[in-house]
Nucleic acid binder design. Sequence first.
RNA 1: GCCGCUGUGGCGAAAUGGCAGACGCAACGGACUUAAAAUCCGUUGGGCUUAACGGCCCGUGCCGGUUCGAGUCCGGCCAGCGGUACCA
Length: 862
Amino acid sequence: MSERRKPYPFDQLEPKWQTLWDERRAFRAPNPGEPDFDSTKPKFYVLDMFPYPSGAGLHVGHPEGYTATDIIARYKRLRGCNVLHPMGWDAFGLPAEQYAIKTGQHPSITTRDNVAKFKTQLKRIGFSYDWEREISTADPKYFRWTQWIFLQIYNSWFNPETRRAEPITSYTGDDPDSVRLAYVAEVAVNWCPELGTVLANEEVIDGKSEVGSFPVVKRPMRQWILRITAFAERLIDELEPLDWPTGIKLLQRNWIGRSEGAEVNFAAGVDDSSDNVTVFTTRPDTLYGATYMVLAPENPLVERLTTAEQRPAVEQYRQQIAAKSDLERTDLAKEKSGIFTGGFAMNPVNGERIPIWIADYVLMSYGTGAIMAVPAHDERDFEFAQKFHLPIREVVAAAPRSSEGGEAPCSLPPLVCTTDDGFAVNSPLIDGLPTAAATSKMIEWLEQNAHGRRDVRYKLRDWLFSRQRYWGEPFPIVWRDGKHEALPESDLPLEPPPLDDFKPTGTGEPPLAKAKDWLRYSGAASRETNTMPQWAGSCWYYLRFCDPGNDERLVGEAAERYWMGGDQAGGVDLYIGGTEHAVLHLLYARFWHKVLFDLGHLSKTEPFQRLVNQGMILGEDGRKMSKRWGNVIDPLDVIALYGADAFRCYEMFMGPLEQMKPWSMKGVEGVSRFLARVWRLMMEENQAGDWILSDHLQEIALEKRQLRVMHATIKKVTEDIEALSFNTAISQMMVFVNEFTGAAARPVSALRTLLILLNPFAPHISSELWEALAQKFPGGEGDVTQQDWPEHDPAHLIEDEVEIIIQINGKLRDKIVVPLDIAEEDLKALALARPKVIELTAGKAIAKVVVVPKKLVNIVAR
RNA sequence: GCCGCUGUGGCGAAAUGGCAGACGCAACGGACUUAAAAUCCGUUGGGCUUAACGGCCCGUGCCGGUUCGAGUCCGGCCAGCGGUACCA
């Protein structure tokens, strides 16, 4: 295939400018205290979700968000901001370790190679990152502070009085280990045999691992856990004021899953009622309808509440459930199962004796692991009651009903179930009350009679924080006599041992246990062999970017105050990334941020002020890009054909940033044509085939029409960048170019304005053309990146005359051109006098005339 | 099941309640060229009508409502995508 002729010499000018930017450190962001720091400028922190450097390299999906942030970064610089725009690597993680197991190549080598590849790709797209701030989570200089933060968490507790994390020294109880924000517990965890590790709930999807889709089983193990549930309420409340997509906020809120209700105590037992079972319910108003009770099979109370007679059946059921994986348990969700324990509980509100069952539809991990079953008003209880012929009693009705001479106290099954609100019936204490009032009154009664209390529960569970992997941060913890203790800060960073054999042991013992020398700490003490999950590094990288070289602190105070603080809401001003991190990363990072804030290390309670999710880019065939379909596009291939500027502009021109959209090479070509037209506005080829400045360029005033287009373009591009509507900003610049392409004489000032507007989108071509113009015409000192962003003048947008549309009954019928300042009455008269209007309204009465100045006249005729 | 998002030309998409389809792709016609590519100029939602200028009707997933006027607001459906799933 013959060499395709380039529409303009991007293959030469793009590398030229990329080299120049590097040499001039053009996008370095000085920190407070540095000599070239300008404190008079406002700060702007614009951040990408940093990538995991996989072996496959970038595909065109990654740079979509990166291009958007780069446009913002370059735009904010032109508007006179100090811009923090960094990039780094989420370098710990499973794939590098899996690769190491397969090939024997150390994960650090794999990671280094992959980072190099990613960096080459990013640099070739011309992103204006401050590469002097590059960080890698696998770098000891970085994870030293990840480990340090873990120690802060370990050494704190959540004080319910102040609702804040506080140093563990402020805890006055007997057993500090029971309240630490990082604690060890033997819990049923998600064990993935294939990966040889436990996983967080968030990493398990439909009973399979998120990475690799391997089966996951429940298994009790001793694990490190972070007490994120202590922050559940704040994680919900403090989410509210953030400028995030409502969908993402909702997702987080649902994940945290706040439920308001009450705890109710039931006396319970086999013969007498010596025991006590507490349940959580969101519908205390239905207490009279509780006709039986269900415990989770794993609930320890089951032992004591089972009669000798029922014990064999109960044990059999419990074993049957325990043998099931989570997947099987949810698969069988449709058919209810359970067994009677033989025990009974006493309903505190009416003294009724109700049977206690166990069933796997009650989960040990939510609420108290026990429920009061109200079959008439809960779908699951209803289904269960029907299957096992348990009584169903209606206690909520659509309309109030007299308690006098009404239903029998324990009605026959109505065979219907409603979860809707209504009015209490068959409930002497609250009869006739609407659900909300009935609920409050019942809670009051429970509290007054010491049968229960108001309560709030969350779906969110504590964060399982340890992994049995090699390629992650070791815990800065040692064990002595079966007790954990923190390493001194001076021992940080604690690097993983240089292992050759990374394979999981298969027993659940972490690979680090194989490093016998490393394991020994001092005397009888030995190191913790678990490592942290991949999330750890990404929980705080945005903080490190503020001050990546600091050896004294995780981030210098002044740098943190400047970049993460500020008069306004503070934090990262704009954070762009994929929806896949809507709950996990964003929740974990917010949690750590709050702990560090409470402990006085940070300025603001929230890390990310404004969040935007870019949509996925599909292949040309409309399918998700994947090796399987062979529809993956490599940015470097696109750049080789059309250049980095065309690549960037196309990524933005495709459609709205947040929308999912398919790739189109033809589309890239169209945008490339646009850039070539910009080029030829100013350049032409001479006889020798060299590009020289065009003869059409002149230092002349703009025509009225040109002025209008130019100012309209300044206005639209500015507003659209602020709104992240990059596709329409580019459209407007195309309109500008179309307008000036036809002009025989092209005013230099207008072209310079265009180049500044275009610079954030297409930085290379705009830099080159700016430089070329400066060689012949005065007034273009400095690079285009050093100019001031233009302001539009509204005076140039106003026309003397305006076209008015004339509607009859809302339908367009005619148009007239009138002076801008015409009086409404005159406009109305003019419209009514139009021959067309007279014709179409003949024989009808004109009921009304709506006049919208500068827009339209609508004549209502009947 | 529940929650959320999205439905507009052949395609990607525009449109503070006020001319639906800006801008781009594709297609078609023209100029330039020996020719092609590239470039430049033009046409391009569908239908009917006119010799022509032009004119008329229909059209933003479906049904209804609010309004002088609805792609846009409200109510009810349908479809696609995403999340979640016994959370008491």
